[in-house]
Structure formats: structure tokens, C-alpha cells
């Protein structure tokens, strides 16, 4: 999938043009930071949608690092986010610790659990099937745990997060910039990994696992790295959601609330690409808003989108369109000759 632009990127890196690799991140950051001023800063509703889009973009970057880069189908994004969110809520509520301790612990716990799940699944190089099974079972177990440990989690009614930044939830724009900073930081991390030796290992093991192993890439180790970093991103986002929203409950981190959407938007934006999750999240925010009153039909439509995209555009919808446009642009001069 990345074989096309790869040699040129390698060239820039070798030639010392590392800075150029970050141009897309800088561009995206500029757009994210400027757009509220020229568009929706006045509307609390639209800002709320934008915050949600950024939140999902952050989840999606983490998921994309795990699944898009190393082919580990983590079907527990919601549960990992919930680990971050609930660690924040429980530590600030029951242990009366400062909120940032909760956020840090939540991120670390999510990273640890994600790494552990990855370790279980890759230990015997059992591959994608066991990753899917173990993570899906973990999603279910986590939801049951939330419901069961009522004295800690508040059960199905959820809990209010002490020390949450109420001001962020109130003005909305503060929450927007918080998640904007998170997404930009994640994109920088993603890019750094992509152009470092880790990214080369990721591409090698994704394209052909056996060949990568034979070439000396420790496939299992790089998979676990990806799971650790990606899960930390997801856990941090979940913790910051608890921090900015101030209320968490099991449905907030449910499989059909988070995993389904993240899968749809990553599939749409392009698996394994830098900006795919962000583009997917923005487009998805519009789609989701248009479907807001259609209730359960939404899930039906998301399912259909997943099926159609994976049947027709394996690399993602946006990359397919970009390739098509690029192909047409190249063809035209050729015809003129």
C-alpha cells in the first residue's frame, strides 16, 4: 500500500529533509487551530461536534497505529479508553488524588493492558485471529466489570468526575483546544515513528510478516511497541474525556459507541495513513450529525459502510479517491503527447 511514495520519502529522510515529513502535520495543525475563529467559535453546538470529532480523531490515531501499522485488530478501543477514563474518575473520587495523577495512571494502565493483550496474541505468532478474539472478549469483560464493581464505578448510573475542568465543558472552546493539542501531538508521534527505524519495521511486517522476520525484524516486539503506544494514546484520550466532560458511564465507552465508529472512520480515511483518521473523523462528524435523529438505523448504516469500504477500498476510501485523481492527472499529459 505504501510502496508508491515510499522511495521518495526515504530519499528525503536520507538527504536530511526530515522537516519536510512534518509538513502535513503542520498544515493540519494550522487548519485545526484557525478554523474555530473563522467558522464556529460562536456556536456552542457546532463546537461540541468539533470537540467530538477531535476526540474520535485521537482514538483513531491510536487505533490506526495498532491496526493500520501492524495489522493487530484491536476490538477494544472503547475498553482501553474506559480504563483511562475510569482510572481518572476513581482515583480523583475515591483516593482524592489530583486529577493529573488519575490521567497519568489511566494512560499508563491502558498502555499496560494494551501491551499485555498484544503480548498474549503475538507470543506464539498466532496472528490476527487471536488478537481479535482476545480483545473482543476483553471489551465484554470490561463492560461487565464496570457494571459489577458498583462501589467503585457507580455501576450503570455512572459517576461524576471530581476535579474535572467544568470550565472546559462550559465554554466548549477550551475543550476544543485541549483535544486539538492532543490530536496534533499524536500526529507528531505517529509521524516520528513512521520516519524512524520503527516505521520501517512496521511497513516491513505489515507487507510480509515472514519476510520481515527473515530480514531480522523482531515482529513480535514491534507489534507490542505499537500496541503500547497506541493504547497509551487511547487511554489518554479517554482520561481527558473524563476530565473535560466531568461524567462517565459504561455506555460512554461501550463497544457500539466507540469501536464501531473508530473502525468506520479509519476505514474511510485510510488505514495506516497519517491524516486518514483526522479526515475520517471530520467527515464522520458530519455524517453522524446528519443521522442524529435516526436512532438505531445509524448502526445499520455504519455496518453497511464497513462492509462496502472493506469490500471495495481495502486501503481506505480517501486514498482510493486520491489515487484515482492522481492517476487521471498523470494520464492527461500523456494523452497530449
Amino acid at each position: 500500500m505504501t510502496s508508491g511514495p515510499l522511495p521518495r520519502r526515504l530519499g528525503t529522510v536520507v538527504a536530511g529533509g526530515r522537516g519536510r515529513a512534518f509538513l502535513p502535520v503542520v498544515g493540519a495543525a494550522a487548519v485545526i487551530l484557525v478554523i474555530p475563529q473563522i467558522w464556529f467559535a460562536g456556536s456552542e453546538y457546532t463546537t461540541g461536534l468539533a470537540v467530538q470529532a477531535l476526540e474520535f480523531a485521537a482514538y483513531a490515531v491510536g487505533f490506526n497505529l495498532i491496526f493500520g501499522s501492524t495489522n493487530q485488530l484491536f476490538l477494544c478501543v472503547g475498553a482501553l479508553a474506559g480504563l483511562g477514563g475510569y482510572a481518572t474518575g476513581i482515583l480523583s473520587d475515591h483516593a482524592s488524588l489530583p486529577i493529573w495523577v488519575g490521567i497519568a495512571v489511566g494512560t499508563a494502565v491502558a498502555a499496560g493492558v494494551g501491551g499485555l493483550l498484544s503480548w498474549i496474541a503475538v507470543r506464539r505468532s498466532l496472528g490476527v485471529i487471536f488478537t481479535g478474539i482476545v480483545t473482543l472478549a476483553f471489551s465484554l469483560g470490561f463492560q461487565d466489570l464496570l457494571l459489577g464493581q458498583e462501589h467503585l464505578t457507580g455501576g450503570s448510573t455512572g459517576q461524576v468526575v471530581n476535579g474535572a475542568a467544568v470550565s472546559l465543558a462550559d465554554t466548549r472552546l477550551g475543550g476544543y483546544y485541549l483535544f486539538a493539542a492532543v490530536v496534533i501531538a499524536f500526529l507528531v508521534v505517529f509521524r516520528v515513528l513512521q520516519i524512524s527505524h520503527v516505521g520501517w519495521a512496521f511497513r516491513a511486517l505489515r507487507d510480509d510478516e515472514t519476510a520481515a522476520e527473515l530480514a531480522g525484524v523482531n515482529v513480535a516486539r514491534y507489534r507490542i511497541y505499537a500496541a503500547l503506544v497506541g493504547s497509551a494514546m487511547i487511554g489518554l484520550t479517554g482520561a481527558l474525556y473524563a476530565y473535560s466532560d466531568g461524567f462517565i458511564s459504561p455506555p460512554v465507552f461501550a463497544f457500539d459507541q466507540i469501536d464501531v465508529k473508530v473502525l468506520v472512520l479509519v476505514a474511510f480515511g485510510g488505514l495506516g495513513t497519517l491524516l486518514g483518521p483526522l479526515i475520517g473523523a471530520v467527515v464522520f462528524a458530519f455524517v453522524d450529525n446528519a443521522l442524529v435523529n435516526s436512532g438505531q438505523v445509524r448502526e445499520l448504516i455504519y455496518g453497511a459502510i464497513v462492509v462496502v469500504i472493506f469490500l471495495s477500498f481495502r486501503g481506505g476510501f480517501v486514498p482510493a479517491v486520491v489515487n484515482l485523481a492522481g492517476g487521471l492527472a498523470r494520464q492527461r499529459p500523456a494523452q497530449g503527447e
Binding site: 495489522n71 485488530l73 457500539d256 455496518g303 464497513v306
Partner: peptide
């Protein structure tokens, strides 16, 4: 190989969403 497993998982997951969506929509 791996592609087969992955595509199978993703497609059937999509189908699961579709069936659940239809059922909870028609008969919540």
C-alpha cells in the same frame, strides 16, 4: 493467509452491526 482472516473478521463485524441495527430498530 492473514488477509483472508482479517477481511473475514471485518466483513462479518459489519454484518453484525447491520443485523443488530435492523433488529433494534424494528423491535427495540
Amino acid at each position: 493467509g492473514g488477509n483472508k482472516v482479517l477481511l473475514g473478521l471485518l466483513l462479518t463485524l459489519g454484518v453484525a452491526f447491520v443485523i443488530e441495527g435492523v433488529l433494534t430498530w424494528r423491535d427495540p
